[in-house]
Design a protein around this nucleic acid. Structure first.
Lengths: 93, 93
DNA sequence: CGGTATCCACGACGATACTG
DNA sequence: CAGTATCGTCGTGGATACCG
């Protein structure tokens, strides 16, 4: 639960499941997340060893976030989470 | 996430997965949960249509909580949750 | 037995402004 | 571009005491 709880966390992970992505690109994909909360999530995921950050050389700075091997272990859980959510959603629960 | 988030929620659900159970029996199985929080959880799960309450006749009052059909839909998710937790735990994430 | 009532502490989230 | 700083608000969880 610790790995996936918190608002936005599963959505951030879902984006990372699809491809490596920059901070700004994440914000574009998740327009309503504030920079602070996104940074919070990424820090947390990095602390837990689920995500890595790479700083690309050059100016302006660019970054690239990617899942670690541990992070990729979450894929079946996320799928089950969305699947279960849809099943309950259809019923009204 | 709404169905399983919150401290104690998955543990309460796990107990209910095994059998119908009373309020007091739940407290025995989860010794560190306060009555308020347990009541909160059960109310929430009932509101979401995942759990039912039955009041048994007689005195003192006895109750029996059980999963609904919707509640039972959570079983695969819980299994995946515990499975993933163990996988990450082994690694230190 | 099976809860409620009350109160408090803490952390999560969000808005906004700012920086290297 | 990629964040950090600051601040305020609100919900969650917990302790404790009490009630039908």
């Amino acid at each position: 639960m610790a790995a996936v709880s918190g608002r936005w966390t599963t959505l951030v992970l879902r984006e990372l499941m699809q491809a490596e992505i920059s901070f700004g690109a994440l914000r574009e994909r998740l327009p309503d997340i504030s920079p602070k909360v996104l940074a919070d999530r990424l820090h947390l995921l990095r602390e837990r060893g689920l995500v890595t950050q790479e700083r690309l050389p050059g100016f302006p700075v660019r970054t690239r976030y990617a899942l670690t091997e541990s992070g990729r272990l979450l894929r079946p859980l996320l799928i089950e989470l969305y699947r279960t959510g849809e099943m309950l959603g259809e019923r009204g629960a």
